[in-house]
Design a protein around this nucleic acid. Sequence first.
DNA 1: TAAATATACGATAGAATTGGTCGTATATTT
DNA 2: AAATATACGACCAATTCTATCGTATATTTA
Lengths: 154, 154
Amino acid sequence: MKLSKKTDYALRVLFTLVEHYGRGPIPIRELARRNEVPKRFLEHIMLEMKARGWVDSTPGKRGGYTLAKSPDKIMMGEVVRHFDGVLAPIGCVSVTHYQPCSQSSVCRFRPFLLNIRNEIARQMDQASLAGVFSDSLRPSPETPQNPSADGCET
Amino acid sequence: MKLSKKTDYALRVLFTLVEHYGRGPIPIRELARRNEVPKRFLEHIMLEMKARGWVDSTPGKRGGYTLAKSPDKIMMGEVVRHFDGVLAPIGCVSVTHYQPCSQSSVCRFRPFLLNIRNEIARQMDQASLAGVFSDSLRPSPETPQNPSADGCET
DNA sequence: TAAATATACGATAGAATTGGTCGTATATTT
DNA sequence: AAATATACGACCAATTCTATCGTATATTTA
């Protein structure tokens, strides 16, 4: 259930760009340094994000990367799906990557997993970078900054 | 975000045992066959599950595995957590495996991910094998048997 | 008590994924 | 023209995942 490093890195950089939106490009060196991402690794990530139309690049002396579209037009779900592949916890509850299950025992927990997948997808697809960013500035009681504040585990 | 094969296999077998609860042991050979799980691989999985107190084994000619406790005393969350490790999508939103993030950009999406983690954990920890099993017998409109019935992707 | 059949369990190994590096080409600005 | 930026394929190391094998041991049944 864990996000890959790549997704993590991509999100870090995207939010840095969101914060800097409208104020010119940031060189990749700076993006890497500020977010503790290996620069050479980040290059590939940025290329993928450019291909997806999330960022634009400017070469040359004062070049770097900018957000290619408004932060409220990029959804968390898009990013996670692109780098992590499927959101669904198991093949047979995936629509895009659906594969049938011949096992009746599997179909005992398929509806349950489908529910979870739907809930994740719903939240992911409703949340834009802009929304998540502004929410993070005024934290609500529901989302405490300190993880030990709630009783859940893992 | 995907469940490991091991978790998948474990759940398949558990639900087979749930279905057979109270009617004696099932040999591992049969569990493997009915659920299309490699037998030698399943041995290890069963050992882990025995150590966790979910199943019991009976050696000998009419031996095999049984559920060690009532199906409503085993939670989906326990199983997934055991085999897949952390439920949290990223380290800094995990309680048991919490590791601090020095990156302010990370903390832009931490609250969002924490919400998702909480929702997953809530559903996982509320659902017992018994509950999931009986729900699967009378499918509701919310959980269609055919994944293409709803509009979500992945 | 012997044969059959069951679990127990450590060692090992192939495959896939993940995370990351390197060299080098190319475009743009100053 | 120099400096600095991105572009991009090739490659590699580590880990994780998935699975197999050999062998030991316990129990039942005939």
